[in-house]
């Protein structure tokens, strides 16, 4: 009997690993070169009593891509044979670009999107004013450090727009938060 329980628990862990692998392979709807796992948006995958519960966190509070992520996760998991799938949204702790994995950063750069540097570390006291560029953004196309910020906001809330003064190509940068 205890052996049966053990095998059952093992089976559940196997199912959880399989569900996690399926969820981890879903790509971001707006940055399709990287997965939700690499982006750090996928927080947890659990299987209990046959139900898959996936927890994701928004990059920005109003991020409209969250709906698409949810639909994609549900569709892929359902397609993989999991009948009962729930996708929860969690807000705490808040997402930070530090959660983007090394492989995610490489994929972003290979696709011409400059990956974020380390998220700003805040000193004690009020949030300090930042009135200039905090770091030199390197061009993901030619590697030049001679770049200009064109706009602090780009096509999505998580990116800013830049141009390389070396190769003259415009590019997007994932903002450090």
């Amino acid at each position: 009997m205890s052996g049966g329980t053990s095998r059952g628990a093992e089976g559940a862990r196997g199912e959880e690993a399989r569900a996690r692998a399926v969820a981890a392979a879903v790509v971001d709807p707006e940055l399709p070169m990287i997965t939700l796992d690499e982006l750090g948006v996928l927080r947890e995958v659990r299987v209990e009593d046959g139900r898959v519960e996936v927890s994701i966190t928004p990059t920005y509070t109003g991020c409209p891509a969250l709906d698409a992520m949810r639909d994609d996760l549900r569709a892929r998991l359902t397609g993989a044979g999991f009948a009962d799938v729930r996708v929860r949204t969690v807000l705490d702790p808040p997402w930070t670009t530090d959660w983007i994995s090394e492989s995610g950063r490489r994929s972003l750069a290979e696709a011409g999107v400059s990956p974020p540097g380390p998220a700003p570390r805040r000193p004690a006291g009020p949030v300090p004013l930042t009135l200039g560029p905090v770091r030199r953004i390197r061009c993901p196309h030619c590697g030049s450090a001679d770049t200009t910020e064109l706009s602090r906001f780009a096509a999505t809330a998580c990116k800013s727009l830049h141009r390389c003064n070396g190769c003259r190509e415009p590019f997007e940068h994932v903002k450090e938060i």
């Binding site: 991020c63 709906d67 929860r88 949204t89 807000l91 705490d92």
Partner: peptide
């Protein structure tokens, strides 16, 4: 926090 953002079938939480 999990509950306030609890999923539902319509997948329309964020927007």
């Amino acid at each position: 926090l999990g509950a306030i953002a609890e999923d539902n079938d319509e997948a329309r939480w964020a927007f």
